[in-house]
């Protein structure tokens, strides 16, 4: 249920009685309703669903999770169990 993706708030303004703003999703921008995330400021990331920001992304807990995950990933790599597939080798340079 519910495709929602994180985007960065570019600006904030009032329109038609709602807190609105433009949000950048990896190079494309969309006008999004920010009424439900009054704490989200320009530069913050928020999860957006159907044109509405639902939650500010908490950077600290994102970094914490990533640190835990990376640790697990690194242990794996040291054991040499990684198996890069053939097409990836030198070709997966999708920017």
């Amino acid at each position: 249920m519910c495709l929602a993706i994180p985007g960065q708030v570019l600006d904030v303004y009032e329109a038609n009685g709602a807190r609105m703003g433009r949000v950048d999703f990896g190079g494309i921008t969309k006008e999004v309703c920010l009424t439900f995330v009054p704490e989200a400021m320009v530069g913050d990331y928020a999860i957006v669903h159907a044109g509405f920001a639902l939650s500010r992304v908490d950077e600290r807990s994102a970094l914490e999770s990533l640190a835990t995950f990376r640790e697990l990933g690194l242990i794996e790599e040291e054991l040499g169990i990684t198996q890069p597939s053939e097409e990836t080798a030198g070709e997966a340079d999708t920017p």
Binding site: I5, G26, G27, I28, E86, E91
Partner: peptide, 21 residues
């Protein structure tokens, strides 16, 4: 047989696809 990591998609196209599903 394709390889997901080798399918070339521009970041903006990918972002738009993510947004619209």
């Amino acid at each position: 047989a394709l390889n997901d990591d080798a399918i070339p998609v521009r970041p903006t196209v990918r972002a738009a696809c993510e947004m619209l599903g």
